[in-house]
Simulated assay, not measured.
Amino acid sequence: MRLIEYRPERSRQWNRAGIQLAVAGLVSLGVLGWLLVTGRLGQWGWLAAISAVTLLASPYSAVLGHAAAGRTVLDAEGITVQQPLRRRFCSWEDITSIAVTRTQARGRYYLRVRVTRARGSRLTLPAPYAIAREERHLPFEWQVAEIRRHWRTATGRR
């Protein structure tokens, strides 16, 4: 079996990252304004303000970087989910089902692949991933079919 790798679409991830970082920046500026108006900057002045902005923006950056850098790798042994802070492996024999989760919000469908393991735990793959205006998204469905085909081939399931 050849190695197959899926990555999230960068444009969507980074567009979302830009929006969320802009929101974090606005919240940080709000906090900075509040500190200035109430006179609570204290003796540290602008250093405290810059620290507050950094502290408020950092969690957003970490979460978005984690989501955008994730990938799913299929090989002869199983599925490997690689993310910046974590790497998980699931052998083909350990998988009991491969399902698609569809979440609807704001007039769009968010499609993800979820793998259920023999011990009952679930693993959501970072890719393939799709945001669609309709319930079906053919490129995503082809990728899911490819994952299921490799699973069936490796385990002899029908």
Rank of each mutant, 00 (worst) to 15 (best):
A68N: 09
E134M: 03
G107F: 01
D94Q: 14
V144S: 02
E134S: 14
A132E: 08
D94K: 11
S51Q: 05
S51Y: 03
A99Q: 14
R40I: 00
L36M: 13
A49D: 05
T124K: 09
A48T: 04
L3F: 02
R108E: 08
G25W: 03
G33F: 11
R10A: 14
R149K: 13
G156W: 07
R158I: 08
V63M: 14
A145D: 13
E9D: 12
L138T: 14
L35T: 03
A22I: 04
S58W: 13
A132I: 06
R136L: 10
W151N: 12
R158D: 07
A118R: 14
I95D: 09
W46K: 00
L29Y: 03
L32E: 10
T38D: 11
Q143G: 00
A57M: 14
G30H: 04
V115G: 08
W44A: 15
V73P: 05
P128E: 05
F89T: 08
F140I: 11
R40T: 09
V53A: 15
R152A: 09
S58T: 14
L35P: 00
R117A: 12
Q83N: 12
L74R: 01
A127V: 04
I147T: 08
A145S: 13
W142C: 03
A62Y: 14
L74F: 07
Q43Y: 07
L125E: 03
A17D: 00
A22W: 04
R86C: 02
W14K: 02
T38M: 09
G18C: 06
V115Q: 06
T80I: 06
L32S: 10
S11P: 01
A99V: 11
C90E: 14
T153Y: 02
R158C: 01
N15F: 13
S91P: 10
A105S: 11
S51I: 10
W44R: 10
P139W: 09
A22E: 02
R88T: 13
A127Y: 01
R16M: 15
V23G: 00
A17Y: 11
L74W: 03
T80P: 02
T103S: 11
R86V: 06
L55A: 13
G78W: 09
Q143H: 08
R40H: 12
G30Q: 01
A99T: 13
A57N: 02
L138Y: 04
A154P: 09
W92F: 06
G33V: 06
T155C: 04
R10K: 15
V37G: 01
A132T: 09
T116I: 05
T101W: 07
W44Y: 11
A67D: 10
R12V: 12
R108F: 04
R2G: 05
A130F: 03
R114E: 14
A48K: 05
A67H: 09
L56M: 07
T80K: 05
R152D: 10
Q104W: 05
